[in-house]
């Protein structure tokens, strides 16, 4: 079972490798990947450097090129594949069928993983993408553990699941809420609820967060104000004001680790390319220890209190959830 950690910068990448990641995933410094944030990611020279460092340590480098190519500059997505391939990427994480087909034809020996942005939630969808020679599928965060188990049993392909981090509650790759409010979506711009549209306003002690002018939430002085990700705001439905879609909380599957291991899940992905090297260090340490423990003795595995404390401290709103893996969440 692989530990796959995020890196948005060279220091984060080094932190992940030095603290026990089996592989690291990164993106280029443009909108060809789903974490297109200012000051983040790798240019061509840095990507080569990253590949060298990862390979010196005997680990693997995954490069995410997982937004959908635009009609007027499709070549940029092809070039992103070329750059990653030439830099020595071990794996390309792809979502657009044209980009998948290009990578399969041009670089057949470089592994292709189906990005979560391709939104493959069932055996028939996985079957569809097999024509592009994929070797692994990253599952969307909408499935229950029971559904993950059924897929693991019915599909003869490696599966990767999200283990920890920000929780997308919608089927990834098919959520247009962000472009509805801002004009920019994960699919088209590689960003959700982009920071450029965020406004904060203090009204006599009540803090208001807005996204492109739309009120996402109001925080009383005693409340912790979270980033206005639009699906995690408080809205009015009927007579109630509440988190109509989801609370600000992070996914944490530590409790499910023995089950994920038993089903032969190939890789655990940690979300958070936008996070700091310090975050990557802590999260990698905890998950390395947990995975080592479950692999050493799955029957006697138990979640250590100290791991949960570290993870809770790193979670959005200091809250964690099993998300859709746990049926009751739905």
């Amino acid at each position: 079972m692989e530990l796959l950690c995020p890196a948005g910068s060279m220091p984060a990448l080094k932190a992940a490798i030095e603290h026990g990641a089996d592989a690291v995933y990164i993106g280029l410094k443009d909108d060809t990947n789903a974490r297109h944030f200012a000051g983040l990611n790798f240019d061509e020279a840095r990507l080569k450097e990253a590949a060298r460092f990862v390979h010196q340590h005997g680990k693997k480098l995954h490069v995410a090129i997982n937004t959908f190519a635009h009609p007027d500059n499709y070549q940029r997505w092809q070039q992103a594949v070329d750059i990653a391939a030439n830099a020595g990427a071990d794996v390309l994480i792809l979502a657009d069928i044209a980009v998948l087909a290009y990578a399969a034809g041009r670089y057949p020996k470089i592994e292709r993983h189906l990005s979560v942005q391709a939104s493959a939630t069932n055996a028939a969808a996985i079957n569809f993408y097999r024509q592009f020679g994929i070797s692994r599928v990253v599952l969307p965060r909408v499935l229950s553990m029971q559904q993950v188990r059924a897929l693991a049993k019915s599909c003869d392909i490696d599966l990767e699941v999200f283990a920890f981090g920000s929780l997308c509650i919608m089927a990834e790759g098919r959520c247009y809420l962000s472009s509805y409010m801002t004009g920019q979506s994960p699919n088209t711009a590689g960003a959700c609820s982009p920071a450029a549209f965020v406004q904060w306003q203090d009204n006599n002690g009540t803090l208001e967060s807005r996204l492109n002018g739309i009120l996402i939430d109001r925080f009383a002085p005693n409340e912790t104000a979270g980033y206005p990700t639009l699906c995690k705001g408080r809205f009015n439905v009927g007579a109630d004001t509440y988190h109509a879609l989801e609370e600000p909380t992070s996914l944490n599957t530590l409790d499910l680790l023995p089950q994920l291991y038993a089903e032969g899940i190939k890789s655990l992905k940690i979300e958070g390319r936008q996070r700091s090297p310090a975050y990557v260090t802590q999260i990698t340490q905890v998950w390395r220890a947990a995975i080592d423990a479950v692999m050493a003795d799955p029957q006697r595995f138990s979640v250590q209190q100290q791991w949960q404390q570290v993870l809770a401290g790193l979670a959005e709103g200091s809250q964690t959830t099993l998300g859709a893996y746990h049926r009751k969440w739905k």
Binding site: A69, A98, N122, N187
Partner: peptide
């Protein structure tokens, strides 16, 4: 409205409509 449906239709050589939730964003796709 899901590529799983395309996969089944393709196996039967049947024509299909790709709904708005199928991610087709460019001429190559």
């Amino acid at each position: 409205n899901d590529v799983g449906a395309i996969s089944m239709l393709q196996q039967h050589n049947l024509p299909f409509v790709a709904g708005a939730a199928i991610n087709c964003y460019n001429q190559h796709s």
